[in-house]
């Protein structure tokens, strides 16, 4: 079992040896800490998120990877008693600075959640929601175009173009998740955060979403939390390993899976704990 795992991972890594030549920093975490009330969930995380790359956050459950993801667009603000310390920057601007507006931040850093959560509205309305609230389009024709483009980018257009006004909740799980991705894309964010986007999907739907992520990185910076090692290996250029609230190690994905610096990373990747 393990052998097969390792083999698979290696193949995946080799297949995706992309040389990160002109790397540019999109986001940066500097001694990030997160407290939930008395309990500290994240300890001094330093990390760089590179533009137009997929960064995967991995680690056993409860390691703080989702917490860190949520602090990248301040979704933690909605949780009572949650405090974020340290510094997180987007294009060198501190996103926790008073001058930064959280609404604007989230329009730039979109988010896709673990469980597909389409609004109980039509497919069209789900995608149009973001452009509408932010006033991004001038006319109905504009909006139609944005909806169509977003659905195309999310590789959902062909499946739903004839039933745009059906309920979004009527789609299959994988389609729902791609709808949520289209919904996020429609706002034209710079960064898309994905919190285990495939955990509720079947293998075929997962493959579709993974393909999609790979395409999206041309236009967007993507940070993805995943539970599945293979997925991290398949979709990401960089991988960060979290454990017990600490960032254990971060590096190019191929290096993380073949020759990690830390023993804990090695153990986790080879399935010794998790």
């Amino acid at each position: 079992m393990n052998v097969m795992n390792e083999q698979k991972i290696e193949e995946a890594v080799k297949a995706r040896m992309t040389a990160g030549t002109n790397e540019v920093i999109k986001m940066r975490g500097d001694k990030v800490t997160v407290h939930y009330g008395e309990k500290q969930a994240l300890f001094d995380v330093d990390i760089l998120i590179r533009e137009n790359q997929v960064t995967a956050l991995i680690g056993p459950s409860g390691c703080g990877k989702s917490t860190f993801l949520r602090s990248l667009n301040r979704m933690n603000d909605t949780i009572a008693g949650c405090r974020v310390g340290g510094k997180i920057t987007l294009d060198n601007e501190d996103i926790y600075d008073r001058a930064i507006d959280v609404v604007e931040l989230r329009a730039r850093v979109g988010m896709v959640f673990q469980k597909p959560n389409p609004f109980p509205k039509s497919i069209y309305e789900n995608v149009a929601y973001g452009p509408r609230i932010h006033g991004l389009t001038r006319s109905k024709a504009d909006l139609d175009e944005v909806v169509e483009k977003s659905l195309q980018k999310a590789a959902l257009w062909n499946e739903v173009k004839d039933r745009l006004h059906d309920a979004g909740t009527g789609l299959s799980g994988g389609q729902q998740q791609r709808l949520c991705i289209a919904r996020a894309i429609a706002v034209s964010p710079e960064v898309i955060l994905m919190d285990e986007p495939c955990s509720a999907l079947d293998p075929i739907a997962t493959a579709r979403v993974e393909e999609l992520i790979d395409e999206l990185k041309q236009n967007y910076t993507i940070v993805i939390v995943t539970h599945s090692m293979q997925q991290a290996a398949r979709v990401s250029q960089r991988t960060a390993m979290f454990h017990l609230g600490y960032l254990v190690e971060e590096g190019p994905t191929e290096k993380m899976f073949t020759n990690p610096d830390e023993k804990r990373t090695q153990d986790y990747i080879t399935g010794r704990f998790g």
């Binding site: 896709v112 959560n117 609004f119 919904r183």
Partner: peptide, 18 residues
Amino acid sequence: VPQAMRDGSLGLGATRSE
């Protein structure tokens, strides 16, 4: 109404009242 609905909307940059 599930929290996921709120998260979905807030995550897109909607204000609370929106």
